[in-house]
Every structure is written in structure tokens, then in C-alpha cells.
Simulated assay, not measured.
Amino acid sequence: MIDIFVYGTLKRGFPFHPLGLDGASFLGAVETLEPYPLLIAGSFFGPMMLDRPGEGLRVRGELYRVEPGRLPKLDELEDVGSPGSFRTQILVAGEGSGQVEAIGYMKSQSWLDPVHTGYLSDYQDRRFIPPWER
């Protein structure tokens, strides 16, 4: 099994959750141990986190445990394979729980055009335009 940290459109109540994490084991609300830059960017108002630990704010999100066979669908939803879109290991912790190493989805600077917000600690924006509506 694999632990996944989600901070944006894969969270419960957002458009990609039913497509990628429906039925997955929810382990709880967590926060990154280090600050990261999380912004709303792109013509589709996507939440994007950059792999720059130590910059930005500690990011709140959700932790899930999934079977390895679910990764290709999650990678597809997160555009892994497109230039500047990748996954990496990230340390998170929840209230009353120890730290966990989980997969986190990241973007490079090239995805940030245009930028719509400053750094965020908790994605709650509802302007995201899913691919089927673009």
C-alpha cells in the first residue's frame, strides 16, 4: 500500500476526488512538516505546489492509503508525464499522529502562468476548471 498526500482537487468535495480516491482509505487531515509554495495558477485555476521545501507555508491536506494499481489514474489526473508535473516524497503529520512519508504531486515554475494568488496554506478555492469543461 502507498500513502498519498493531497492538497487540492483530489481532496474530498473537489472534482478529482471521485475519479481518483473514491473508496480509498482516508487516514486523516495532515500538514506538511516544512513550508511549500502552494498557489492557484494557470488558465484553469489549478492548485499547484512547487517542490521548494522551506519556501511558502505549511500546507494542509488529506492523507490516503491506496493500492499501487491506483497510481496510474492519480498520475493521469495530476498530469504526471507532462513536462514540469511530477510526484515526489513529502513528509506530513496530523494532529496526534507521527510523521509519515507520502507521495505528493508537484509542478514546476513553468505551470505558473498566470498566477492568481499568493502562497496558500489550505486550498479551498472553487474556481478550478476541470478538463471536461475547458
Rank of each mutant, 00 (worst) to 15 (best):
I4N: 05
G28K: 12
P68S: 15
P130W: 00
K107A: 11
G8M: 05
R12W: 06
D125T: 04
V115Q: 01
G20L: 08
M48W: 14
I90H: 01
E55C: 12
V92M: 11
F14Y: 14
R65Q: 14
G42A: 07
G28R: 09
P131V: 14
R126W: 08
P72V: 14
V66M: 06
W111H: 11
H17C: 13
P83W: 12
R58M: 10
Q89C: 09
S85E: 11
G54H: 05
G13D: 10
S110D: 15
S110F: 01
G118W: 03
R87F: 15
R126P: 07
E67Y: 09
R12I: 09
G23K: 05
Q124E: 12
T117G: 02
P47G: 05
D75W: 07
G13S: 12
A102G: 03
E62N: 06
D125C: 09
I129F: 08
F128P: 04
P18L: 06
T88E: 11
R134V: 15
D3P: 10
E78K: 09
F5P: 01
A102R: 03
L71F: 09
S110C: 13
I4S: 04
H17A: 14
R12P: 03
L74I: 15
G28D: 05
F26T: 05
V30S: 11
G118Q: 09
L120S: 01
V6E: 01
R127M: 07
Y119G: 07
Y105V: 02
V59H: 01
I129K: 13
G96Q: 01
K73M: 11
G8H: 01
P37S: 00
G84Y: 08
F45D: 03
A29Y: 06
L19K: 15
P15R: 06
V115H: 00
P131E: 10
P15E: 05
Y105L: 05
Y119M: 08
A24T: 09
V59N: 01
L112W: 00
G20H: 05
M106E: 08
V66S: 07
L63Y: 05
S97Y: 06
I90D: 06
D122M: 10
L10A: 06
L50I: 07
R58C: 15
L50D: 00
V66K: 02
M49V: 12
M48D: 03
A41M: 00
A24K: 03
L112P: 00
I103L: 15
Q109R: 14
E133H: 12
L21A: 05
M48S: 15
S108R: 14
R87W: 15
G61R: 01
L27D: 02
R134Q: 12
R60M: 15
G8T: 03
Y123G: 00
F44P: 07
E78W: 10
P114Q: 08
D22C: 13
V92I: 05
F86C: 13
G28S: 06
T88C: 08
K107C: 13
G98S: 12
K107Q: 08
Q109F: 03
H116F: 07
L21G: 06
P37L: 08
K11E: 07
H17N: 15
F5I: 04
G28H: 12
F128L: 04
P131R: 13
L10P: 03
S85M: 12
P35T: 09
W132R: 09
F128V: 07
P47S: 04
P72W: 13
E62R: 02
E55D: 14
L71T: 07
Y36L: 10
T88I: 04
G13A: 13
R65E: 15
V59W: 02
Y123C: 09
D125M: 05
